[in-house]
Design a protein around this nucleic acid. Structure first.
Lengths: 123, 123
DNA sequence: CGTCTGGTTCGACAAGCGTCTATTCAAGGA
DNA sequence: TCCTTGAATAGACGCTTGTCGAACCAGACG
């Protein structure tokens, strides 16, 4: 019965304890909800997955546009939403633009949803 | 209120590997995005936190309505969104209705955002 | 029975969001 | 220099969403 809490030392990003630990303050809820909302679209979720699962740790826009039956501007719009949510970061190198996942933000969202061990129902 | 939910017991909390492991298939992305979208509102995020952090493991609607400056119907609407996303489950006992978090779904969303260790680049 | 209280459903409205076409910008190559 | 390609921006359109007041349902209690 070891009680171990995953101590995460995220400077700035991971400011909040998991949702089950204490009620989430309103000001943090607003910021975090914006990030979750960015994930609340199937295209964006797949875009993030494509970028995060790319072998090089980053992906060119030209590569991640093809799998979708959407126009360029629409993909660009979704990338902007992910970027402004702090989930990805982009950089232009020559002709192409490369995006990479932002670990701190993604990890923060994951940690927030970690639930404590189910308490064994003692009499 | 009939709970005719198909018993999709996602054992192990989730069918999908973390987003960085492989590109997320479209059909799973749709379902998961619906769940993240439910978290994409500050009120719902706080509602879930209030329910999940309640000592009894469940919370009465009458208790979680007060902290918000919103009308009853609005809170009820948000609870319905969380319920239909599979994040919480409600039960009526006498006069009051109690909600509890659904571990499987919440854990699935958390796991999906777990990133692998930063690869130590080979030279 | 009638009435009160807790919670949900209904209907409506403004604001927000996803998608498109058309346009613009950025960088290279002839 | 002009032209081509990759990507972002601008503007428009229809659908979705958050919120409300009003009405409705479900129990508990005289």
């Amino acid at each position: 019965m070891s009680k171990q809490l995953p101590v995460l030392t995220d400077d700035g990003a991971g400011c909040c304890a998991p949702i089950a630990q204490m009620p989430l303050p309103a000001e943090h809820a607003a910021r975090l909800a914006r990030a979750y909302k960015a994930l609340g679209d199937p295209v964006r979720l797949q875009l993030l997955s494509l970028i995060a699962s790319h072998p090089d740790g980053e992906a060119c826009v030209c590569d991640i546009t093809a799998p979708f039956e959407l126009t360029g501007p629409t993909i660009s719009h979704h990338l902007k939403v992910l970027r402004e949510a702090g989930l990805i970061a982009g950089e232009r190198r020559g002709t192409w633009v490369y995006y990479r996942p932002v670990r701190e933000t993604i990890t923060e969202l994951s940690t927030l949803l970690v639930l404590p061990q189910a308490a064994a129902t003692v009499s």
